[in-house]
Simulated assay, not measured.
Amino acid sequence: MTPAPPRRLVDIFVLNLALADLVFVFTLPLWAVAAGQHHRWPFGRVMCKISSYIIAVNRFSNIFFLTCMSVDRYLAVVRLMDSHVLRSSRCVHLTCGVVWGVSLLLGVPSLVYRHLSEEDDGSSCIDDMDSLFFKAMILLTGFLTFMLPVLIIVLCYGSILAKLRKHSISAGNQRAEARRRHSLKIVFTIITAFLVSWLPYNVFKTIQVISSMSDTSLGDAVQENLSRGLIISSCLAFVNSCINPAIYLSLDKHFRRSAAALCLNCLGHGDAQHSYVSSNSFSNATSESLGSVPSRGRLFSLTQKT
Rank of each mutant, 00 (worst) to 15 (best):
L264Y: 06
Q208K: 01
C91D: 06
K185N: 12
G101S: 15
L236M: 14
M1F: 06
V10G: 00
R90T: 11
S212L: 02
G291V: 00
I12C: 03
V239C: 15
R73N: 09
L195T: 05
D271C: 14
C48D: 00
R7L: 09
K49R: 11
D82A: 15
V203Y: 01
Q37C: 06
V85C: 12
R175T: 10
F143Y: 13
T2A: 08
S211N: 05
M81L: 08
V46Q: 00
F282Y: 11
V92M: 01
G97V: 08
N202A: 12
T145P: 00
S159A: 15
T306H: 07
D121I: 06
I243F: 13
P42E: 13
L199H: 09
Y276Q: 10
D21Y: 12
I190H: 00
R175K: 12
D11N: 11
G142V: 03
M137K: 02
L94A: 15
S117L: 10
L139D: 01
L111C: 05
S292D: 15
L148G: 07
S301P: 06
F133S: 13
C125S: 05
R257L: 15
L94G: 12
I232S: 09
L9R: 14
M47R: 04
M137D: 04
L267F: 12
F26M: 02
T306M: 06
T145L: 05
S295T: 10
L184P: 01
S212V: 02
K163S: 14
A20F: 04
S89G: 11
F133V: 15
L290A: 01
R181C: 11
P149D: 06
R114H: 07
N58P: 07
F282V: 14
